Computed example of a mutant assay.
Amino acid sequence: MRNSLNSALRPRLAAGAIAIACAALLCAGAHTASAATPAAAAAEQPVVAVQTVRVQRAEIAQPVRAYGIVAASASNLTTVNLPYTARIVQMRVQSGQTVTRGTPLFVVQADAAAVLAATQAKSAVTLAQGELTRTQSLYDKGLATQSQLASARKAAADAQQALAAQNQTGVANGNKIVTAPNDGVVLQVSAAQGDQVQPGTAILQLAGGSGKDARANVMLGVEPADAAAIHAGDIVTLHGLSTSLAKTSANGHVALVGASVDQQSHLVDVGANVPLGQTAFIPGTRVSADIATRNGTHWIVPRAAVLKDGKGAYVLQITPQNKARRVAVTIQVENGERYGVDGALDAAQGLVVSGNYELKDGMAVRTSGGAPR
């Protein structure tokens, strides 16, 4: 019977031993897995590949695009005419010609009546002066009254004023050469050789374009929302709209900014003074222009480097420990693919321009070349 009991217990003891052994193995495996977890987690921490550029502070401006025409400002046009009737003897210039101050424009011959009026004015002065001298002599001898002397003096003064008025007209006997009053371009010739022109009739128009004065020689139109940022003195860069002038440009400055919206174009007029004497921008040329506004010194960063979220705009820089550092920025200027921003940037740290969408503050990074940065 004892043998029988032992036979019954043996299978139970063996099963128990096996269970204990399995439990021990499971505990050992769990301990090993637990010990390996920190190392595995550290090994699996993501390292983002990025591309960086250097950042620096420099001057940057926000361009405002405008469109207009050369020499369209009335303040820049000079109409050449005569205050007396005359005949055009010879025309010395033609439309489109560039002239300087003093360049002969045309030759005229005053009308006979105008010459006669000028001659009579000179004779009247001579006569009045003689009468004044004679009356003064009689008055000194007691042979003329005070009233007569006053009348003689007034007649002499009136004759002098009439002569001065005739001299201002520039009437001369014979041919006279009329010269350009200022530098510019002959915009329009309204008279031809042999024409009889009346006083005040436009003979030709000059469009100033030498850049030697501060008058506007280019009129541009800008959107009303952009006009407030434009001020006199802002730099203007003209560009040609035609195919032949596509690569041509000229620089100048804003001379005036309109204070109202044009009812026809619904734009605000901006006048610019641009030296055009040696350029292909002749009067009447239609142009586009970039006006540099809000000029200032800021951090210059590529547009791709700036991200935005609920906390505002920010960029990411790489610390010496190869970690991403979030820097809040304020966008001050937009210029094409560049921003001018203010913020606590470090010029010694790389600025992330590619891969920044995958980054968070403090994440490990490496450059696209493989070396941590």
Rank of each mutant, 00 (worst) to 15 (best):
Q317L: 06
D195V: 01
Q160L: 12
A259W: 11
A15E: 07
S354C: 03
K360F: 04
A72D: 12
Q205P: 13
A117I: 14
G233K: 09
A24M: 15
A152G: 02
V257C: 05
Q51P: 12
T319R: 09
A228Q: 14
S249Q: 03
A39K: 15
L206H: 01
A39R: 15
T37H: 05
V50S: 04
L256Q: 13
L132I: 08
A324V: 02
V70R: 05
I203Q: 03
P46W: 14
A113R: 14
V189W: 08
H231D: 12
Q56E: 10
D183H: 00
N273K: 10
N76A: 04
V89F: 02
V329F: 07
A180C: 11
S260Q: 10
A228H: 14
G29P: 13
H253F: 09
S368E: 06
V270C: 05
V108I: 09
Q198F: 15
L187M: 15
L345V: 03
A155H: 04
I20R: 01
V352P: 00
A180N: 05
T32L: 07
F106G: 00
R366A: 01
Q198T: 13
A250G: 11
A172R: 11
N251S: 12
V186S: 01
A155V: 08
G208R: 12
G221H: 06
A207M: 06
G343M: 03
N175H: 07
V64W: 02
P83I: 14
P38W: 11
D309R: 13
A114W: 06
P63M: 09
E59S: 14
G142Q: 01
P63H: 09
L9G: 06
T119D: 13
M91T: 07
G209I: 04
A42W: 15
